[in-house]
Design a protein around this nucleic acid. Sequence first.
DNA 1: CTCGTAAGCTAGTGGTGGTTAGGTAAGGTA
DNA 2: TACCTTACCTAACCACCACTAGCTTACGAG
Lengths: 216, 216
Amino acid sequence: MSTQSTADAPPRKRLTAEARREVIEQAALKVFAERGYHGASVDEIARRSGVTPPVVYDHFASKLDLHKRLLQRTRDELLEMWREHLAGEEPAEERIPRALDAWASYVQEHPYAPRMFFHETTGDPEIQAIHAEVQAQARVALGAILGREPGAEKVAGSADEEALEMAAEVMRAGLTGLAIWWNEHPDVPRERIVATAVNALWIGFERVRHGDTWPT
Amino acid sequence: MSTQSTADAPPRKRLTAEARREVIEQAALKVFAERGYHGASVDEIARRSGVTPPVVYDHFASKLDLHKRLLQRTRDELLEMWREHLAGEEPAEERIPRALDAWASYVQEHPYAPRMFFHETTGDPEIQAIHAEVQAQARVALGAILGREPGAEKVAGSADEEALEMAAEVMRAGLTGLAIWWNEHPDVPRERIVATAVNALWIGFERVRHGDTWPT
DNA sequence: CTCGTAAGCTAGTGGTGGTTAGGTAAGGTA
DNA sequence: TACCTTACCTAACCACCACTAGCTTACGAG
């Protein structure tokens, strides 16, 4: 009974370094997402990769290093995604749904990704920096949607920087929450998620744009 | 140098059991919020309470038990808060700002509370249950705001249960994110937070109520 | 078939962290 | 002042976990 393969991976197969690395990254993504950084054990990551712990260290310098690379990878993918789908000069009515559809596709294909950015608990400054960076980028992306529309800055009292940042943060956290809710309710079709997201965001956009805010 | 009192608490003072317990709970709240469940060590909680680890065990059966009690306590306080400020028969225009002002007061007085509910990482089923319960209650509270208004269910396609739940989840997560953002930017006055929250929520309320949703 | 490379293993090590046993002394009470 | 309760400590245990040294064996090249 030396080979048990407790979970995901096939029962011990010799892979190329690159392939094994990919398997480990996928497994680690899940474990970190489920248990958090400290709660995740290298042992479990290894088991779910169909491998023993030392193999993990053939590919990553340390647990922290593995975590860091996953964050960076996810950050890059998200950034690329926003860059790709937020561009263009169409009006917001088309651009926003398109961007959020792309976002939904991403979280559908990477169900564990959003959880990794939900709460920072390592205490490691380098990792805190990545977290802060990702969140800031998301806020910028969303802030662009909310604020860069023509007319925004002309409206009285509607859009100082800080207000924009707060609104974007509400959206960012809201979307992340929705993504996590979604992977607990996988039956919900993507269009419904997109619709919810569009409504939430859209709305904020219209409000901030028109300066139609409370208190009246 | 036996007494170092590395942080918060006064340098070793003999307290009544009740008082010490309170000190420990406050310290633990911070540490859990900062580091997450697994990242928090009993040792650090004890130090920040001006005491050694065994004393923690005079008051709580285990680290998990301590965590559980903090969650329950916070849950009860939040529930009480919603119950108190969401009642009444005034129109939404008054009730919502009032409820969110109360919410802002709570997170201002308990800056570490929101972080405890942001991400579950213990894996303990009992704790998962508390988390789920708190989030469900928050969704119910917010869902009540969004949905229970007269007219809501009469509008075509606007408010099936699931859509309501999703919208409420976006709001819930958004508010939680805002709360955390706030305690990283403590200078921002409460009125601004409340205003942001009201706008985010309010808006959702209006939209769902009018069935004025995307896709058009 | 042979052989070298490299993927993966077994078996440990050091350290940390939750937890407990048993003793010390502070402070109210008689 | 003597005493008893109890808040708090010191010292240790043990399980778990990140990480490493060194061996084994699968596989592709010749």
